[in-house]
């Protein structure tokens, strides 16, 4: 449905520490809820989030069913080199959602 939302400063001074915010649309079905007929609704969550800069891992997270629906993840980055930030979210169903942003260090 909706594309993931990311907030990355357009540019940063070398050495500056910036915050990166991410938000993705996902129900994060826990696997413990039951439907109206009493059947367990199967678990379907995003289980892994990663962020790379120029293909080098800078931050990642393993998520469990206790992460809220429409997961929010914010972290920081020290501006050292310009390049491409790649964000990926891995779904239990095998799908991977991704987006990217340019990061300019001056």
């Amino acid at each position: 449905m909706a594309k993931p939302r990311i907030k990355v400063p357009k540019s940063a001074a070398k050495g500056e520490i910036v915050e990166i915010k991410t938000l993705i649309s996902h129900k994060m079905e826990t696997g413990i809820r039951k439907d109206r007929d009493g059947n367990i609704i199967p678990r379907q969550i995003i289980n892994k989030f990663t962020c790379t800069l120029n293909d080098k891992m800078v931050f990642s997270a393993d998520w469990y069913p206790a992460v809220s629906a429409n997961p929010y993840m914010a972290f920081h980055l020290r501006a050292s080199e310009s390049g491409k930030l790649n964000f990926t979210w891995q779904d239990d169903n095998g799908e991977t959602y991704s987006t990217s942003a340019d990061f300019n260090v001056s």
Binding site: I17, T30, L53, K56, M57, V58, F59, A61, P65, A66, V67, S68, P71, Y72, M73, A74, F75, H76, L77, R78, S80
Partner: peptide, 14 residues
């Protein structure tokens, strides 16, 4: 990773 500059993050949980 050291690239983070600070070990500071936030999320939301159930």
């Amino acid at each position: 990773t050291p690239a983070n500059g600070v070990a500071k993050a936030s999320t939301r949980m159930r």
